[in-house]
């Protein structure tokens, strides 16, 4: 299974609609980096509203993909992390310190714009 990556001007938008399994997550990491390279995108919003569970492996893949994208010059914002997912991550001691977040896709785009203008 592959997660669709949409292009909107200089941004890439991804809405993850299922709980990620390991293969899908790794495939997504690769697809996203290729797409950033292809399109020369400045910013990425990954919306996780429909994701009900993130374990330590998926969290690591997501954290990595944010850092890798940053290296390639694209800022990433994670949006729509559900309360249960956030609390579970905190319980496990996973903080994702360096990752910008926003409530939803719309605010995520606003945040990207602010950061890119600054």
């Amino acid at each position: 299974m592959r997660i669709p990556i949409l292009k909107l001007k200089n941004y890439l938008l991804i809405s993850v609609q299922v709980d990620l399994d390991d293969q899908t997550a790794l495939q997504f990491q690769e697809d996203l980096l290729n797409k950033i390279h292809q399109e020369g995108s400045f910013g990425v919003v990954i919306d996780l509203t429909s994701v009900e569970m993130i374990d330590s492996f998926i969290a690591k893949v997501l954290g990595d993909v944010v850092e890798m994208s940053n290296l390639m010059g694209a800022k990433v914002v994670l949006t729509g992390i559900q309360p249960g997912v956030a609390i579970t991550l905190i319980d496990m001691g996973i903080v994702l310190d360096e990752v910008p977040t926003a409530l939803d896709l719309e605010q995520g785009l606003d945040k990207l714009q602010q950061e890119l203008e600054a």
């Binding site: 569970m53 997912v85 579970t88």
Partner: peptide, 28 residues
Amino acid sequence: ARQAGRNLAKELGFGGVDQARFTTAISE
């Protein structure tokens, strides 16, 4: 495994947050 866990947790009446805690533990 985590799908089975989520189904049982829902059936038993766990709240959203505890469902996430339980399925994540199974996943780990």
